[in-house]
Amino acid sequence: MAAIGWYILAAAGEIAGCFAFWAWARLGKSVWWLLPGLASLAAFAFALTRVEADFAGRAYAAYGGIYITASILWLWAVEGHAPDRWDLTGAAVALLGAAIILWGPRGA
Rank of each mutant, 00 (worst) to 15 (best):
K29A: 14
I68N: 01
T89E: 03
G90S: 08
A42Y: 13
L96D: 00
L9S: 09
W24Q: 06
W86T: 15
D54C: 00
G28D: 09
I8N: 05
A3Y: 07
R58G: 05
L75M: 14
A43V: 15
T49S: 15
G90T: 11
R106Y: 00
R106Q: 14
A56V: 10
F21Q: 10
W6E: 11
I15V: 12
W6C: 02
S30C: 09
D84V: 08
Y67F: 14
A108D: 15
C18M: 11
F19K: 06
E14N: 09
L102M: 08
G64I: 08
F21Y: 11
L96W: 02
W33L: 08
A94E: 06
L9F: 02
L96F: 08
I4N: 05
A39D: 07
R85Q: 14
S71C: 13
A2T: 15
L96T: 12
G65Y: 04
W24I: 01
R50D: 09
D54G: 15
G65C: 02
A59D: 08
W76M: 07
L102C: 00
G107E: 11
C18Q: 13
L88Q: 05
G5H: 04
A77C: 05
R58P: 07
L102T: 06
Y63M: 03
A62M: 03
E79M: 12
F19H: 12
M1S: 11
A56S: 12
I8F: 04
A47N: 10
G17P: 12
Y67W: 11
G13R: 08
G80I: 12
G17N: 10
W74A: 04
L73I: 14
G5I: 15
W32L: 15
L9C: 13
R58F: 00
L95V: 13
A94W: 11
W74G: 01
A108V: 14
A23Y: 01
A82D: 10
S71T: 14
L88V: 15
L34Y: 07
A99G: 01
I15R: 01
A25D: 14
A98S: 06
G37C: 09
A56N: 08
V31E: 13
L9M: 13
T89K: 04
A92P: 03
D87N: 15
I72W: 05
W86V: 14
A62I: 10
A45P: 12
Y60N: 09
A94R: 02
L95P: 02
W103I: 04
W76T: 07
L38N: 14
